[in-house]
Design a protein around this nucleic acid. Structure first.
Lengths: 252, 252
DNA sequence: GTCATATGCATGTTTATGACTGTTTATTCA
DNA sequence: TGAATAAACAGTCATAAACATGCATATGAC
């Protein structure tokens, strides 16, 4: 029995049961727990499971936004503060769907007379009563899981706007220095806005670093300002070479 | 059982019940109360719950509802129940902005496979994670005070849809037997949807009766099904003559 | 043979947990 | 009102299990 084979079986078990226990697997496959742990470590690195003390859990790929909202809120608020600091009066800004961006619009100071473009109803809903913000909503079919309109209708409208700034909801920032997304249409839409915007802000929590999803939005480039929360400088060295600006915020 | 897994389950319980009790959880998971308290402490630190003496509460991180959204909630929920009772599988329904309609979408039963059209981000935001509901968002400039897109862009898109049902957010129902609205563009938009829809549902709280605003949407007619909360039959006699269907719901 | 990989074992470290301490809190009853 | 009381609390410690890591061995391909 080879380890790859074993990992496939573990993955099946995860899909079926939602969780696996390390010592049970060791007994079942008649290998040491160390080997099982090695498997789980590799699988976790390949985004096939979530490691926990004692075993592993099935990776919930489509965590609904309402759950994601409540993870790591402190870091997201920290990022939000840093993001809005870059806003100045009269700017037009595209803000798409992400739990971090919810905090961004909540942290929006009043009196800036901004024009906010968005394809995410959750973002627009927060701004609905904000009289001195001009909100332009991109419509279309709402894609569940993304929480925004990214269909052909939305794309059509997206090609008509030219925001000064794009606050991108980041799904993952891969080690190959690319911004990645889980949903195809979402990736396409993001790419269009990214091309049209004068500048791009990427607020990222630590968990987004090194995560590669199925679709690439764009490579990290000079147009991007990266804001990372609670991250070591060393982990970001690679991105500096892409020419992007980097800021680190920390609550410590 | 792992602490991570346990915390996820606790979080689910919180979402479902709104609160958890420490010693009950300890008994349920067969761990000491200390462990449960540790879990709750961690979850509170991650903004996943609010700690209280004896357990924890679900964290309400919805935007503070403004003004009218908090008044007469019981009546609105009553109306919402009556409205969704008229929904059947596969229907396409337009739901516009109103505090009553927020309750309507919250009361939406699952598994109906509906198509919901809306020009209100607050409505769409609630439905964003609902996988078996197809949400089509009408975009455009968001009109503050209305909380929906009612500009020329929105009107353009509105003329392309043909909903089976229109759940209208009612501003006022005048004694001259007309549906009225405060905002001009909102009134125009409502009239367009009302013309295109096969049927119209008008949920009204008592305070809406006899109220006339600046703009008339349309006269009460045969296409309209009026649902009134906590209202005397006598007050509605006049509307019956318009040929509309009338239902009275009451919590008494 | 060499090389790459997989495995088991020994190592020191980290983690989750229950038990114990004293303190804080809500409630009960005078 | 205020004192009495039991429950819930935070913090510390001990312990056993799980952990990462380095190293030696085994297996199979070339």
């Amino acid at each position: 029995m080879y380890s790859k084979e074993r990992q496939k079986l573990i993955y099946r078990r995860l899909e079926a049961d939602g969780q696996v226990v390390a010592n049970e697997l060791a007994a079942e496959f008649d290998v040491s727990e160390d080997s099982i742990r090695r498997d789980l470590r590799e699988m976790a690195a390949a985004q096939q499971c979530e490691r926990v003390y004692g075993g592993a859990l099935k990776l919930d790929r489509s965590t609904p936004m309402r759950d994601r909202q409540n993870i790591d809120v402190a870091a997201k608020q920290l990022l939000a503060q840093a993001v809005v600091k870059g806003f100045s009066a009269g700017m037009s800004i595209f803000i798409d769907a992400s739990s971090t961006n919810l905090e961004v619009v909540r942290a929006l100071p009043s009196g800036l007379d901004l024009t906010i473009f968005t394809n995410a109803p959750s973002i627009a809903a927060i701004l609905a009563d904000d009289v001195d913000t001009n909100v332009i909503l991109i419509g279309g079919r709402l894609t569940p899981g993304v929480g925004a309109c990214v269909d052909s209708r939305a794309v059509q409208d997206a090609t008509l706007i030219n925001p000064d700034l794009y606050v991108m909801g980041v799904c993952g920032l891969s080690d190959s220095l690319e911004v990645t997304a889980e949903d195809h249409d979402d990736a396409v839409f993001k790419r269009i806005i990214a091309e049209r915007a004068s500048q791009i802000v990427l607020p990222v929590t630590k968990s987004k670093l090194g995560r590669r999803h199925r679709y690439t939005v764009l490579p990290v480039n000079e147009k991007i300002r990266l804001i990372a929360a609670n991250t070591e400088q060393s982990k970001l060295e690679a991105y500096l070479n892409c020419g992007c600006e980097i800021e680190i915020v920390s609550d410590a």
